[in-house]
C-alpha cells in the first residue's frame, strides 16, 4: 500500500546508496503535468466536466460509457466521469492534509526531541515507539473509533498515525544539524538556542523532510481511500474514489467501467506524486546530501 515507506523514509543503509535513476526524463514531466491537471481539477472541476456529480437519475442507472456519459453512470444514474473529477478534491485533500498534520505534529515533536534534554527526548521517542508499534491503518481505525468516520476524521486519523514516523525523521535530521559545525559555531558565538533553532536548524531540516513528505502524500492518499473503501471515510453522496470503488464492487458483473476508472484515477495520482517526489529527492541529494 505504501509507495515509499514513511516508516522507513531514510534507512541509513539505503539512503546513502540511493542511486535511483528515473527511467526517462519525459516521465517526470508527464507526471508533473498529471499533477498539475489534478490540482486544476481540485480548484476548478467545472473546467473538465459540465455534469453535476450529484445529479441522480433513477432511469439512467449503470449505463455504459457513451457520448453523454464519458465513463458511464453509477448505481444512482450519476455521471462517473464527473464524480471522478469532483472526487479529486477530496482525495488530494486526504493525501496532502494528512501529511501536513503528520509534518506539523512530527516536526514539533522531532525538533523538541532533537534539541531537548535526555528526559524530553526519551519521553518523545518512547511515545513514538508505541505509535510505531501499530500499523498505520490500525492506528487510523482506532482514531476513527474515537472521532467517528468522515473525511476530516479520516484525514486526521491518517495524519496522526504518521506523526511517529515524521517525529523520528525530523529528530534524526535535527541531531545531524545540531552536531554540524556551523551550528556549533553559532552556539559558540553566543547565540541562544531558540535562535539557533529558528535560524539554522529548521530551514536545514525542512527541505529533506518536505521531499520525503511529497512521496508520503501518495501513501496517505491510498490510506484515505482505503478508509473510504471500508465505509469509514467520506460519506455518500460526496464523490470520493475509494468509496466509489467500494460501491462498484457490488455491481462489477454489470458495470465494469464503474469498478475500473476510479481505481485508475487513484493509481495514476499516486504514480505522479511518487515520480515527482523521487525526482525532487534526486535533485536535492545531488546538492545537499
Amino acid at each position: 500500500m505504501t509507495v515509499v515507506t514513511p516508516a522507513n523514509p531514510a534507512p541509513p543503509v539505503s539512503a546513502r546508496r540511493l542511486r535511483f535513476r528515473p527511467g526517462i526524463r519525459p516521465g517526470v514531466y508527464l507526471a508533473a503535468l498529471v499533477l498539475f491537471l489534478l490540482v486544476l481539477a481540485t480548484v476548478a472541476p467545472h473546467l473538465f466536466t459540465g455534469q453535476d456529480p450529484l445529479a441522480v437519475d433513477s432511469a439512467q442507472t449503470l449505463r455504459p460509457p457513451s457520448a453523454e456519459h464519458l465513463l458511464g453512470t453509477d448505481e444512482n444514474g450519476r455521471d462517473v466521469f464527473s464524480r471522478i473529477v469532483f472526487g479529486t478534491r477530496t482525495s488530494l485533500l486526504l493525501g496532502f492534509g494528512a501529511i501536513a498534520i503528520a509534518l506539523a505534529g512530527g516536526g514539533l515533536l522531532g525538533v523538541a526531541a532533537g534539541l531537548g534534554n535526555r528526559f524530553v527526548e526519551n519521553l518523545i521517542m518512547r511515545f513514538s515507539d508505541i505509535g510505531l508499534a501499530f500499523p498505520e491503518l490500525l492506528l487510523a481505525l482506532v482514531v476513527i473509533t474515537v472521532a467517528g468516520s468522515g473525511t476530516s476524521n479520516a484525514l486526521i486519523a491518517i495524519g496522526v498515525a504518521n506523526i511517529p514516523n515524521y517525529a523520528r525523521v525530523v529528530r534524526a535530521q535535527t541531531l545531524l544539524i545540531r552536531r554540524s559545525s556551523y551550528v556549533e559555531a553559532a552556539h559558540a558565538l553566543g547565540l541562544s538556542v531558540p535562535r539557533v533553532v529558528l535560524r539554522h536548524v529548521l530551514p536545514n531540516a525542512v527541505k529533506p523532510v518536505l521531499i520525503l513528505a511529497t512521496i508520503g502524500v501518495g501513501s496517505a492518499l491510498v490510506a484515505g481511500s482505503a478508509l473510504s473503501f471500508l465505509g469509514l471515510g467520506t460519506p455518500p453522496p460526496e464523490p470520493e474514489w475509494g468509496s466509489m470503488l467500494s460501491t462498484a464492487r457490488d455491481f462489477i458483473s454489470r458495470a465494469w467501467w464503474y469498478g475500473l476508472f476510479p481505481g485508475v484515477a487513484i493509481t495514476l495520482t499516486v504514480i505522479s506524486v511518487t515520480v515527482v517526489g523521487r525526482a525532487l529527492r534526486l535533485r536535492s541529494e545531488g546538492r545537499t546530501w
Binding site: V56, G150, P235, P236
Partner: peptide
C-alpha cells in the same frame, strides 16, 4: 434509496442531509 430519495425530496424543496456515523 436514500440518495435517490434525497434527490426527489430536493426537487420538492426538502433538504435531506445523509450522514454516515458509525
Amino acid at each position: 434509496i436514500a440518495v435517490q430519495t434525497q434527490a426527489a425530496a430536493r426537487k420538492a424543496g426538502i433538504d435531506i442531509q445523509i450522514q454516515t456515523p458509525s
